[in-house]
């Protein structure tokens, strides 16, 4: 396959940045999107140019490091798939592909396609923990959890914190991530002691960091590589109202 890539190049946080065009020949349809960028970078290094910086780690779709907006879609055109698990067979020979970093004020660009997602860590620090001593692995069923709650918590726990929800949101909101983290703990018995403080603290931190507000457009859930559903935000809202209007927050 022969492709034309238009890639966002930005030398550092204070650089203005621009889209730069590259031609890549001999791309195999079996390559992953990141392997295709590896091929480009190998050539750039041999030519004495600066390679394109991009985030990646496990390349198995579970770490949440890869973060490319491909033709305007975070993680590319395939649903429920991370960039590293996206393969070039999803594109056609001769395609032009635009590659940009996540765009949000709380995710400043470090270099090229790499953004700083410390803001998510700050949201986690605000409430993404439990204080109940859980000790060593307990016996199965020692603490019964209703099956629907366990399933729902597990679904929320699938969030890998990649930030695609923020990148996709027309409001630049990180509410799907926040909701996934809040509900993943809030539905489990071990998460109950901090349940209503957690939701308020995490939402406040989210807002203070400069993320936008949720208007339920549903863009996030379409972009989410783990398919976290929009009603997770509805559950967060319910807990938030119980905590504030209902007076459940201590």
């Amino acid at each position: 396959m022969k492709l034309t890539l238009r890639i966002w190049r930005q030398n550092g946080p204070s650089d203005k940045g621009a889209m730069v065009e590259y031609k890549v020949d001999d791309v195999s349809p079996d390559m992953s999107f990141l392997e295709m960028l590896d091929v480009l970078n190998e050539r750039l290094i041999l030519d004495g140019e600066e390679p394109v910086a991009f985030d990646h780690d496990c390349r198995e779709g579970i770490c949440g490091m890869c973060s490319l907006v491909i033709n305007g879609a975070p993680h590319g055109p395939e649903r429920a798939t991370t960039t590293c698990q996206l393969h070039m067979r999803k594109f056609k020979d001769g395609d032009t592909i635009d590659i940009e970093p996540w765009r949000a004020r709380p995710f400043p660009v470090i270099k090229d396609l790499v953004v700083d997602r410390t803001a998510f860590d700050k949201i986690i620090q605000a409430g993404g923990y439990i204080s109940a001593p859980t000790g060593a692995a307990p016996d199965a069923h020692a603490m019964p959890v209703p099956k629907p709650d366990a399933d729902r918590a597990f679904e929320a726990a699938e969030c890998i914190g990649c930030g695609a929800c923020v990148a996709a949101c027309p409001n630049g909101s990180g509410m799907l991530f926040t909701a996934a983290k809040v509900m993943h703990l809030g539905l489990m018995p071990q998460g109950q002691p901090e349940r209503y403080d957690r939701v308020v603290d995490m939402v406040e931190t989210h807002d203070d960091l400069g993320f936008g507000g949720c208007t339920n457009t549903g863009e996030c859930t379409v972009a989410c590589p783990k398919g976290i559903s929009l009603d997770t935000i509805g559950m967060l809202n319910r807990d938030y109202l119980r905590a504030t209007a209902g007076g459940a927050k201590k």
Partner: peptide, 22 residues
């Protein structure tokens, strides 16, 4: 308020941005 926050949250816009799917 939501519109202002949304604008502030994305100071650099996407070059390639299809219409929102929602």
């Amino acid at each position: 308020d939501l519109a202002v926050r949304a604008k502030r949250a994305r100071p650099v816009r996407y070059r390639h941005r299809p219409k929102v799917q929602g």
